[in-house]
């Protein structure tokens, strides 16, 4: 897909500027149980449905200064809640409560494997958003399953979210000119790969219990 050079309030997931951006739908499927690192997860989720979200709506853009990635999906968690409820007031303190969450993954180089979330020498960069008060925005690195850790600071990653009915709308943003040139290289004319994951909090999805895109999606930034 192409991230066109656009103008407007692209940091706002509800902004009309997003109507100019092409829409891509990415099919998601349940992450393989065989890849779960623990016997416990493989055993206890064998008879539980997970990876409930199957479709992720994606748009990308840049304005010459920042890169924007807008993600939208219908959340079974939100469907289950009171539609009138303030989407940002739901308590998530309970020991059995998990947030709805979305993540996008970029390979640092061509060797990074999607299935294993990278490996030694070929890390992946992961941007994660999770609902909550406050909501969580994380810039992470991984070099294999179970290795997620905070990325070195400095990428300037942020996220803004909104909700419409049962749908979450999340915009990730990052300055194009990154001080430390942290992968992914997001500059006009550059291209990278992306993969996605969504967690449905109401179904206690977390960690490797998630929906994910099985293939990399090409992303090119318009000059």
């Amino acid at each position: 897909m192409e991230a066109k050079r656009l103008t407007g309030a692209l940091s706002d997931p509800g902004a009309s500027a997003w109507a100019q951006a092409a829409v891509e739908h990415v099919a998601l499927s349940s992450a393989p149980l065989a890849d779960q690192p623990s016997r416990y997860a493989r055993s206890s989720w064998a008879d539980r449905r997970y990876g409930l979200v199957r479709d992720l709506r994606i748009q990308a853009a840049h304005d010459g200064e920042s890169f924007y990635l807008r993600l939208e999906w219908s959340s079974p968690t939100r469907e289950a809640r009171d539609a009138q409820e303030n989407p940002f007031s739901h308590p998530l303190e309970g020991p059995d409560a998990f947030p709805d969450s979305v993540a996008v993954m970029f390979p640092s180089n061509g060797d990074a494997q999607l299935e294993t979330k990278g490996c030694e020498g070929a890390p992946v960069e992961i941007w994660r958003w999770a609902e909550g008060m406050p909501e969580v925005v994380e810039d992470l690195l991984a070099t294999g399953l179970g290795t997620l850790r905070p990325a070195d600071g400095g990428s300037g990653l942020w996220a803004r979210s909104g909700a419409k009915g049962s749908r979450w709308q999340v915009v990730f943003g990052r300055p194009l000119a990154c001080e430390q040139d942290t992968p992914p290289r997001l500059a006009p004319g550059a291209s990278t790969l992306m993969a996605f994951a969504v967690w449905t909090g109401a179904n206690q999805e977390r960690a490797g219990i998630k929906s994910y895109s099985q293939r990399w999606l090409d992303l090119a930034l318009e000059r």
């Binding site: 016997r39 309970g94 020991p95 059995d96």
Partner: peptide, 14 residues
């Protein structure tokens, strides 16, 4: 030797 699925207790159960 086989893990038994467990329940995650709620705030109310604690």
């Amino acid at each position: 030797g086989v893990p038994v699925p467990g329940h995650l207790p709620s705030r109310e159960e604690f």
